[in-house]
Design a binder for these strands. Sequence first.
RNA 1: CGGGGUGUAGCUCAGUAUGGUUAGAGUACUUGGUUUGGGACCAAGGGGCCGAAGGUUCGAGUCCUUUCACCCCGACCA
Length: 567
Amino acid sequence: MRFSRAYIPTVKEAPNEATLPSHIFLTRAGFIAHIASGLYNYLPLGKRVIRKIENIINEEMARAGCEEVELAFVTPAELWQESGRIEKFGKELLRFRDRKENLFVLGPTHEEMMVSIVRNRVSSYKQLPLNLYQIKTKFRDEARPRFGLMRAREFIMKDGYSFHATVEDMNREFDAMEAAYKRILDRLGLEYRIVEADSGAIGGSGSKELMVLAESGEDTLAVCDTCAYGANIEAAVRAPKSAPSEAPVAEFNRFKTPGIKSIADLSAFFHVDPYYTLKCVAKRAVYEEGSKIVLFFLRGSDELQKVKAQNAAKALEIVDVGEEELSEAGLHVGFIGPLDLKGFTCIFDEALRCATSMICGANEVDYHFVGVDLGALGEENRFADLSEVKEGDGCPRCSGTLSYTKGIEVGHIFKLGTTYSKVLKAEFLNEKGQAEPFVMGTYGMGVSRLVAAVIEQHHDEKGCRWTRATAPYTLNILVSNVKDEAQNDLGELLYAQFIKAGVEVIFDDRKERFGFKMNDAELIGFPFTLIIGKGLEQGTVELYVRESGEKLEIPVAEAFACVMERL
RNA sequence: CGGGGUGUAGCUCAGUAUGGUUAGAGUACUUGGUUUGGGACCAAGGGGCCGAAGGUUCGAGUCCUUUCACCCCGACCA
């Protein structure tokens, strides 16, 4: 492509709403154009990057034995009613009616559609397994789109679905997909981590997220400094904590603790480590029908992890409760304890199993109990993992230490099981001739989000630094002064040579000054720029390497070979 | 969905407390000339229903009402 003919509208100033490097540079360098909230147009350079990522995904999917399909973007609402997700998804589902007043939705993910194309067509275990995927525009009417391509309403995603006769076979495919996704991210040149994840509303028995490591990531990850363990903070677990100090010896007793409401005060009052105090976090758990107050108990040294709490309460949502509301319910903030507490759902953190020598609220203003043995609690009390992993906690897999890092979720793979096949009645006949629902897996990868993720991880103050596999053009041939015939001629010659060699090359033949063109080259972020300029009189050209910033002087005669060697 | 902010040239923004010639700057664009290794200089140009609707007024970018859009913080987010 000749730069003079290409549509690459670069600009000096970024729109003021852009805050992330990927958003700023993709806009300034002319890859994308904002059109409305959460909607972007892909300009020629952006489209090229997307295609390159798609190609790599397609190649790796083919290698893993998957087949590509393309499902309708507009999907009948009946399928969503059948699966029950039309309510669950809520307002994120964009709905509309056609001229006959039939209800449709724009697909935000395609479990239902994919199940529907397989059910009643695949009827025997002999036809399994099957892994079908598509790369397609999705739409989610996000409450607050932001960060450019990172959280857009319309976005491109690869979504794959596998169908199996047994759980074992699904597990095998799950591992195969994890391996395929790793290869994709390796080829794209990204630094990433695969972490354990919360399965969220999509359900299923297990899931992992592929996280591109970047400062601007929206997700907090707990990763081990020794082994490969990593998990989203929402799902992270830790090695059991050892007691920080000797347990405070005390007979069971009721103590007056005037005005002592916080864990810090309590621990100071009794001169004990917060580890030996019992923290109560009251929340309102919202269900499809109604809501109720749930009391979560943890050690005073731990914090409640909201997603874990929500899962433990099997609630749709967990919201805060006001102090007044609690008082009306007969609870005294700061003095809530599990003893003699009737009529409330209590959930205890795993770290409290058989905890002894605890100090907890006495459900009476200004009183706490000491010497409490939680092992004495009745059977009706439930235990669950509720506490949030902190930096410095022990790794659950090895003797290493966990620390936080930030990640961009670019992929999520799920062991779905029979969640969807059951409700949608998608069944096959097993060896014994009995009908069984498909065992399914689902595998997503955000293509447009990957475009942003590459830049979040590969940029500097001047602009983009595309990796080899993602660059819109690998090589940029820059003629410093197009009025200089020798420079121009050499540019044309090399341009033709590289095209012939199959290199993705762009030829900057614009009638602009050197600095202007260099700034564009750096903003756009071509991995290599071959500068034909003032060195030509001495018989040399320069190769500028964007990643390292180095400029190599090369004799003209060796230019072609030398560049080819480095690509 | 709660709280806040902003809408004026392709882009970044002045101008709006106090209404008053023909609405400005930078940048980008067009033309001519000079320049040619880090977003050049000189000169001459084109470009606006001041987000939309209604109102107050002799007169509205500016005041009042309504509305729409976009952005930011939070809630939410397979």
